[in-house]
Write a protein that binds this DNA or RNA. Structure first.
Lengths: 296, 296
DNA sequence: TTATCATATAACACCCGATTATACGGTTTG
DNA sequence: CAAACCGTATAATCGGGTGTTATATGATAA
């Protein structure tokens, strides 16, 4: 019927009064404006201007149309702004699913970096087991997932986005703090915090102990490294944690000591195979890699 | 940036899933859709679809844009509807200024006819003296004016839109009702309703009496024919009224009798010279003419 | 393998919306 | 009154966005 360009020309002419100044404002020639108005009048069958003494006088109808067109212009600007924000990565929604080990420490920190300066960005973070994460990804409820274990799900792809190892943390002044490295067996000699045998970390540590013919003995049992860290910081004992959990954490109330034997861990990023990965998720992944790469 | 057509194609493809069905819905060929999408992606620099196994899978970004575009489409439809309503004369605002003689009888009746079936039409009617009417027109407060007297104002044009004459009305069973015509002098013999000497009608009637060397004598004085009509209908007496006031009025409680000598009157429509007359005003004028022409 | 469906590419056509150049009517001005 | 100026309209033309048909390519189903 009548298109946005025609409405734009119409309202501009009404605003500034002459085709000449309207043409200047619109950055086109005067005949373009003149022709457009005539064409629009023919198209919609409404007289938009009276030609009085060589001047254009807008009719009431033209004024009404121009007024209503303002709402259309608002929406045009809105869509343009949203498109621009998407391109600049500052708009969109990103849903992240993570295992508690990562979701309570490293991931929130990366989100914090990622979201600064992008107020229109909505990030939501869901915690869950590896199976829950896979289900969320497969069903489109989450865009990207992070866990220390590898997913086994046909609709979920994965890739390593960070390599690290288990390290020992202890309060400042603890005997361990003066050692360059400790053996896992040493842990049994001091009160320490460890993980439920039902968790991946607990199983991994148990495996290492088992190889040495030992049995893990600990004072406090937790499920997540973030909890263990807080307990160590509170002075309750030492703990084995993944090196990622220490990234960005101020070191004034924690000492870090290497562990023998090395227990390598890797962070797996997971993405759904059934849906295209959003560009927002991809750029989040990039940011994630720079963080873990800098201090894995 | 991104235009409405591109958004339309985008949302259609997302809705129906394939370029082929989108092309059908949009009434264009499949390559047109395919090219448009590619072109849009290049234009805005955002990947809108992933090409997976020969199918197009919309990205999150595309979904978001399509969703926001709905508001734009709403406004487009709204503007189109308004344009159509204007063309069909069923939308707009029309302000009419009329003298009380017309504004209390004939004009409201024409407005009633004019506005039926056009719910979006706003008509306002202002009553006033001929000078007030002229001022309203000259200042753009009114679109069109109606009066029995001719305007004398440089910025107001006028034209006759109905010719009639003064007629005598009397209650059914009144002695006058059996006469084919009466003389003005006969009025002095019966109780009758007439007009203040300060009104145009009063002056006109006085002039006729004066030509016959008579003086007008009446029982009730009013200012408007509409009032006079009501009083006659109430049985208070007879009256001279303009023939327009009887148009459309049911005749069961009023008898109409011609008057000698004839007192021709005309209705003047007035329009501002400084502003273009709205098409709504012009079509109202047309309707007015058909009403007065049918039974002047 | 063949048939079918969906997308992409190539080559071409059309028309909208732009251009420049110029004419024309009105108002202002020396 | 003629000249200058302002604003609009017309003519002829151009370019690109958006369309077309024909066809290739790739994935899936029979």
């Amino acid at each position: 019927m009548i298109n946005a360009r025609q409405l734009e020309v119409l309202t501009t002419v009404i605003e500034v009064g002459t085709t000449l100044r309207a043409a200047e404002l619109l950055g086109v020639s005067q005949p373009a404006v003149s022709n457009m108005i005539r064409h629009t009048e023919d198209l919609i069958g409404i007289t938009l201007f009276e030609r009085a003494k060589g001047r254009l006088v807008p009719t009431k109808e033209a004024r009404l149309i121009a007024q209503e067109a303002q709402h259309l212009f608002m929406q045009q600007k809105r869509v343009s702004r949203i498109v621009r924000e998407i391109r600049e990565g500052s708009r969109g929604s990103l849903t992240i699913a993570a295992s508690p080990s990562l979701g309570l420490g490293l991931v929130p920190r990366v989100i914090g970096e990622f979201a600064t300066g992008a107020p229109q960005l909505r990030v939501s973070l869901e915690l869950g087991s590896i199976d829950v994460i896979c289900d969320m990804l497969a069903s489109g409820q989450a865009d990207i997932g992070f866990a220390l274990t590898q997913p086994r799900h046909p609709a979920v792809s994965h890739e390593a986005v960070g390599a690290g190892e288990m390290v020992c943390v202890c309060p400042p002044g603890h005997p361990f703090a003066r050692m360059r490295r400790i053996g896992v067996a040493d842990l049994n000699q001091v009160p320490h915090i460890s993980y439920s045998a039902a968790t991946p970390l607990g199983q991994m540590i148990d495996r290492v102990f088992a190889e040495k013919g030992l049995e893990r003995r600990y004072a406090f049992e937790v499920r997540h490294t973030a909890t263990a860290l807080e307990m160590v910081a509170a002075g309750l004992g030492v703990a084995l944690v993944d090196s990622f959990g220490l990234i960005g954490r101020r070191a004034d109330n924690l000492e870090r000591v290497a562990v023998e034997p090395s227990m390598p861990i890797r962070i797996n990023a997971m993405m759904p195979r059934l849906f295209p990965t959003s560009s927002l998720a991809i750029s989040f992944l990039d940011r994630f890699r720079t963080v873990t790469g800098a201090a894995g």
